[in-house]
Design a protein around this nucleic acid. Structure first.
Lengths: 353, 353
DNA sequence: GCCGGTCCTTGAAACGTTCCAAAGGGACTG
DNA sequence: CAGTCCCTTTGGAACGTTTCAAGGACCGGC
C-alpha cells in the first residue's frame, strides 16, 4: 500500500509489471475476465487496486473505436421538460452501459454548432438533440461526422434521422377542448413567442378544437415575446383590457399560467370562478399554486428513454441496417382546481368549495 | 467535392495526402496556424473542409495529455441552484477554451462513485462537485486519479481541495432577522430534511438571529422529510395545529414556501396580513406567486464562475504551485409582498404584544 | 511416449494524434 | 562565394490501450 505514485498516474504497463504478467493479460482482466485464470485475475486486480490504476478512455476509444457516451444537447436545461428527458435518457443509457454527456445550447445556433463540433471531436456514440438551428444546416454539417442523432421534440422539415416528438397540436386541442367542455365560449390563448414551433403547434391545436366545437366559440390569441411568469402577467393585463373578458384561458406553458393567475388575482378576478386557466407542462409548482393549475403533461421521461434506446440501437447497428423512425408521444390532461367546471355565478371565494 | 467517404471517416493522414503535405504540417495548421506558410495553410484547410475531417479528441488527448473538458457533478439538476452554477461554469469554461460535461448524481453516493469513475477514465481536466457522499471516502478514492476538483456548496470535514460555498448560516440569519425587524416575535422555521447540511445551516442561522434579538422572540422548528411543495403544505398544516400560530415563517426553500402559502391560503390565513413568509433561493416562480415571495437569493452563477476559474487555474498550475482556497459567497435578501411589514393592527392576528 | 485438445498467456501491431530534432531553401552578410 | 540565419516542412517516435495470431502448459487417451 505504499503510494509510490510520485510522478504520474499508472498505466496498464505498470499494472502488468507489478502483477508479473503481460499487458495483454491485464487488458483481458479488464475486458474479458472469464478468459483469465482466477489466480492471475486476482493478482492483476490487486495490482490495479494498489496502483489506483484508471484505464484511459481516450486510449481505449482510439484503439477500440467506439465510445461509451451518449450526449444530450438541450435548448435550455432550466426547462423542466429537458430535465425529464435527461433523467429518462440517463436511465436508458445506464442500462446499456453508457454515460450521458449533457450540454445546453441556450437556444443559440452558434453555441449549438460549437457544442456539436465538440461532441464530434469526442466521438460520442450518439446525440439526442433539440436543434436551435431549425434550418437544419448545422445538423447537416454534423451528419458528416457520421454520428447518429435523434431529434427530440423538434421536427425539422427536410431532416433525416430519427425523431421523438410530443404531439403539441393534440396538447393544445386537449386543453381548449377541456375548456369548451366546461362551458366556456370565449377563450384566450396566452401564447409564448410564436416563432417557436411549440407555441405554434399548440395554437394550431387550439384552433382545431374551436373549429370542432362549431359556431359560438371564439378564440382570442395573445402572442408573447417570452414564456415566463412576467409574460403571463403581461398577458393578463392585455386580457383585462379586452372589451369582453374571456372566461377561459389556455396558457402556452405553466409559467405563463402562473403569471396569468397572479395578474388576475391582483385585479380581483377569481380563478376559476370568473376565469378558468389551463397551463402546459404540469410543473410541480403549478400543481402547488394557490389555485392548483390544470395542465397538459408531456411524458418527458418516456421521451428520453425512447430517444436513448433508439440511439443505442442505431449506434450498434451495421451501416445500412438501421431505418429511421419517428415516434410521437401523446400528452395528457391533468385537471385541477384552476379549471373546475364553471363559470359559476356568485361566489366570492377563489377556493373551490 | 465528390464525397468519397464510403468507408470510414478521414484522419490527418488523408488530409495530408490530399493537400500534398506531411502529417506534421496538418497538425501545425490545426495547432499553430502561424507557423505555416499562408499558401500551404489554405491548401490544408481546403482539404479539411472537403473531407469533412474532424480531429479525434481521444488521440489528441492521448498524446498531448491534457483534455479540454471540465465536469460538473450535481446533486440534482432539477434544482435551479445547480442550473445557475452550470451557467456560470460554462461561461467561465468557455472563456478558457473548455467545455463542460454535466452529470447528475441524484444525491446517491453509488451513482456519484460511478460517475466519478467515468470522469476519471475520460481524463477530464477537473470536476466541480457537490458530493452526495459527505463522508468523503468517494472523493478520497477519486483523488487518487489526481484530477483536481472543487467542492461546490458542500463543506466536507476532512476534505482537502478548494471549496466554493454560500454562507447558508448567514442566509438563515438574514431571513429571520428580517422577520424580527418586521415585528414578528413568534417565528416558525419550516425546514427541509435536517439531515441535509444546508437546512441545518439555515437553522443555525435562524437560531443565532433569534438569540441576538434577545428574549421575547421564539423559534418553532418544523422539520420535514422532503423539500418540495407538498412538504410546505404539510408544514402549514402542522403549523396551523399549534396552540399559538406563529406570525412569521421562514421556509427552507421556495418550494416549501409556495406549499406553505397554498396551505395557509386554503385555511383562510392571509399572507402577509396574518402570517409573513420568507423563502430561500429566489426562484422565478416564487417571485411570481399570487403573493410574491420574499426570499434569500444565492449567487449561483457567480459560484459557478468562481469554481470553474479556480479549476482552470489549478489544472494549469504545476504540481506544487496550487494552494487550496475556500471561497464563501454571501446570500442576499430580496423583499417582496409576502413579508411586508406587519402584522398590522386591527385585524384578528393572534400574537402576544 | 505421442497426439489432439483445451486453457491461459504472450508479444507486437495497430489506432490518430502531437511533438521534436533535423533538414531544406532562401536571403543576407562578410 | 562561403557562412549564417530564419522560415517552413518533414519523418518518426511517442502516448496507453485493444486485438489477434501464435506459443506454452497441461490433460487424458491411445
Amino acid at each position: 500500500m505504499q503510494g509510490a505514485c510520485v510522478t504520474k498516474s499508472a498505466g496498464m504497463r505498470d499494472v502488468a509489471l507489478l502483477a508479473g504478467v503481460s499487458v495483454g493479460t491485464v487488458s483481458n482482466v479488464l475486458n474479458r475476465p472469464d478468459a483469465v485464470a482466477p489466480g492471475t485475475r486476482a493478482r492483476v486486480q490487486a495490482a490495479i487496486a494498489e496502483l489506483g490504476f484508471v484505464r484511459s478512455e481516450s486510449a481505449r476509444l482510439l484503439r477500440a473505436g467506439s465510445s461509451q457516451v451518449l450526449a444530450l444537447l438541450a435548448l435550455d436545461l432550466a426547462e423542466p421538460f429537458f430535465i425529464g428527458v435527461l433523467r429518462g435518457a440517463e436511465q436508458a443509457a445506464r442500462a446499456a452501459g453508457f454515460g450521458v454527456l449533457v450540454m445546453d445550447s441556450a437556444s443559440s445556433a452558434a453555441t449549438e454548432a460549437t457544442h456539436l463540433a465538440m461532441l464530434a471531436q469526442q466521438r460520442v456514440r450518439g446525440v439526442l438533440v433539440t436543434p436551435a438551428d431549425v434550418s437544419g444546416t448545422t445538423l447537416a454539417e454534423f451528419a458528416r461526422a457520421r454520428i447518429p442523432y435523434v431529434l427530440v421534440d423538434r421536427d425539422i422539415p427536410g431532416g433525416i434521422g430519427c425523431q421523438v416528438l410530443v404531439d403539441d397540436v393534440a396538447g393544445g386541442a386537449m386543453a381548449v377542448a377541456h375548456l369548451i367542455a366546461a362551458g366556456h365560449r370565449r377563450i384566450a390563448y396566452a401564447a409564448g413567442p410564436l416563432e417557436s414551433p411549440q407555441y405554434r403547434d399548440r395554437l394550431e391545436g387550439a384552433r382545431s378544437a374551436v373549429a370542432e366545437a362549431g359556431r359560438g366559440v371564439e378564440l382570442v390569441v395573445l402572442p408573447g415575446t417570452r414564456a415566463d411568469v412576467s409574460a403571463g402577467r403581461d398577458a393578463a393585463e392585455r386580457m383585462l383590457g379586452l372589451a369582453e373578458l374571456p372566461t377561459g384561458v389556455f396558457c402556452g406553458n405553466d409559467l405563463i399560467a402562473l403569471g396569468m393567475l397572479q395578474g388576475l388575482f391582483a385585479a380581483g378576478v377569481a380563478v376559476p370562478r370568473d376565469v378558468a386557466i389551463v397551463g402546459y407542462d404540469d410543473l410541480e409548482v403549478a400543481a402547488g399554486a394557490v389555485v392548483p393549475l390544470t395542465s397538459i403533461r408531456r411524458p418527458a421521461t418516456r421521451v428520453g428513454i425512447a430517444a436513448a434506446e433508439i440511439l443505442v440501437e442505431e449506434s450498434g447497428a451495421a451501416a445500412g441496417q438501421h431505418v429511421h423512425r419517428e415516434l410521437v408521444f401523446q400528452p395528457e390532461l391533468v385537471v385541477r382546481a384552476s379549471s373546475l367546471p364553471g363559470p359559476r355565478p356568485g361566489l366570492p371565494s377563489p377556493r373551490p368549495s
